[in-house]
Design a protein around this nucleic acid. Structure first.
Length: 461
DNA sequence: CTAGCCTTGATT
DNA sequence: AATCAAGGCTAG
């Protein structure tokens, strides 16, 4: 296998693919597109397209249609407001900070790639993917990048049923034993909410985060937790997959620096859902379930998993005051709240509060990996064929998580209880989010024919 | 018009 | 003083 640098994307102009000469009008572009954008805006140029406004824009053909070229400039995120009305030269503009953040992010990314190169990690999840993705940069087919445009066979995300059937034979590694020395007593339907009542007495004291053990003495990571970690996809691979897809879709992913681009967020969420399904179907325990049960479980918990994915990203990699997207972009939370409608603003704020709580608890990657499985294996889902099996897996996960928590925190019971309370909040937040998305979906404000809309319909059918 | 190179000037 | 993203200039 030969070495090919996969960092090429950010060195190419997102408009025409030429060599980038620096940040211009909001993002990294080449010198010629910088000049073209400047001339167009300064002189208020009006172009027309002699074709059907779908001209391919690349380095050799960029001169042929200024109309389509300018459309693409806007689409990839070049900012009109960065062209100065007074034509003042020199100095800096308000984007300076954004450029700085972007640079830091790219630097971090490079470091990650560098580190991974020396410690190559075999990842069976991606290798065994049945869903082929075209990484090639196919330009010119969707020039307006209208996300409502009729999906082609490549840009339409596959249905859940087509994603699920697994070819890999199951090799049993774990016994489904029931030596439950302890269980979380469930008084309600809700797994998480139950802990409020039964263990309330223990958790009235506030949790002291300093009780979290330092890594000085290595915590004992239970075998099952290690297995969950092994199933957990690598963040950088997720990022590369999603950005490759967005490139292919010609959506110009820089656009969501503008928090109003709800559509693009939906495309990202849809792609994340595909990857979550991929994670599940190749994961321990889940891959041996009947496909019908797999579908029921995923239909039930997809929004929780999606939210947890977003939230865990903030805690593991993000920073305060901004939302880190899977693509590596950061969006100011205040911008989102300012631009969003009241319902979305409220969801964002509640989500942020949850992030803060989990941040105080210092939830780590091991625990997030466990929690994902806890959410997936929900024995309260109706009409499960292998209910007993799913229940026993749920108990094993709970045991493993508690065992791990025990080894990393001196106040493990308090900590564990707080963790479960957070999951209860995650549950209600996911229900609200589904309602919100469904409402936008009914108003035809979302891209259709994708996994996201399939999931939205599943529970309401 | 295009695009490569030049000048400018606030920020660091 | 160095940086670097604005605007400016000018052959082709």
């Amino acid at each position: 296998m030969e070495y090919r640098p996969d960092v090429g994307l950010e060195d190419l102009c997102p408009v025409c693919g030429d060599k980038v000469s620096g940040y211009h009008y909001g993002l990294l572009t080449c010198e010629s597109c910088k000049g073209f954008f400047k001339r167009t805006v300064q002189n208020s140029k009006k172009y027309t397209c002699v074709e059907n406004q779908q001209c391919r824009i690349d380095q050799t053909q960029r001169r042929r249609c200024p109309f389509c070229r300018f459309q693409k400039c806007l689409r990839v995120g070049m900012r009109l407001e960065a062209v100065r009305a007074d034509r003042m030269r020199g100095g800096r503009n308000k984007f300076g900070l954004m450029y700085k953040h972007d640079r830091a992010l790219k630097q971090r990314e490079r470091a990650l790639i560098q580190a991974r190169r020396f410690r190559p990690e075999r990842n069976p999840i991606w290798a065994s993917s049945t869903h082929q993705r075209h990484m090639a940069f196919t330009d010119g087919l969707h020039p307006t990048a209208n996300l409502h445009s009729t999906p082609t066979t490549t840009d339409k995300s596959p249905s859940l049923s087509s994603l699920l059937p697994s070819n890999s034979p199951f090799v049993p590694q774990y016994q489904f034993a029931f030596p439950s020395n302890w269980t979380i007593k469930s008084e309600h339907n809700n797994n998480w909410a139950s802990s409020t009542g039964s263990t309330a007495g223990i958790c009235t004291d506030s949790y002291d985060p300093s009780s979290r053990c330092s890594s000085a003495q290595d915590p004992v990571i239970p075998q099952l937790v290690l297995e969950f970690l092994h199933c957990d996809p690598d963040e950088l691979q997720l990022r590369n997959k999603i950005t490759a897809h967005l490139q292919q879709e010609q959506t110009g992913w820089e656009r969501y620096r503008d928090p109003e681009t709800f559509n693009l967020m939906c495309v990202i969420a849809d792609q994340m859902l595909c990857l979550i399904v991929e994670w599940a179907r190749t994961s321990i325990f889940f891959k041996q379930l009947k496909v019908s049960d797999q579908m029921k479980l995923l239909h039930h918990c997809w929004s929780e998993l999606l939210l947890l994915d977003i939230i865990s990203r903030q805690i593991l990699y993000g920073k305060e005051g901004s939302l880190l997207l899977v693509t590596g972009e950061e969006v100011e939370l205040s911008d989102i709240v300012f631009h969003a409608d009241p319902a979305l603003a409220n969801l964002t704020q509640r989500g942020q509060k949850l992030v803060e709580k989990l941040h105080i608890l210092k939830v780590d990657r091991q625990e997030f990996a466990c929690i994902k499985f806890l959410i997936l294996f929900n024995p309260d889902v109706k009409e499960l064929e292998e209910h007993g099996l799913i229940e026993s897996v749920q108990e094993q996960i709970q045991r493993a998580l508690l065992e791990y928590t025990l080894s990393t925190s001196s106040q493990y019971l308090s900590r564990f209880t707080h963790l479960l309370l957070c999951l209860s909040e995650l549950r209600s937040l996911s229900i609200l989010t589904e309602d919100y998305l469904y409402w936008r979906h009914l108003n035809a404000e979302m891209p259709c024919n994708n996994l996201l809309s399939e999931m939205l319909h599943a529970k309401r059918a």
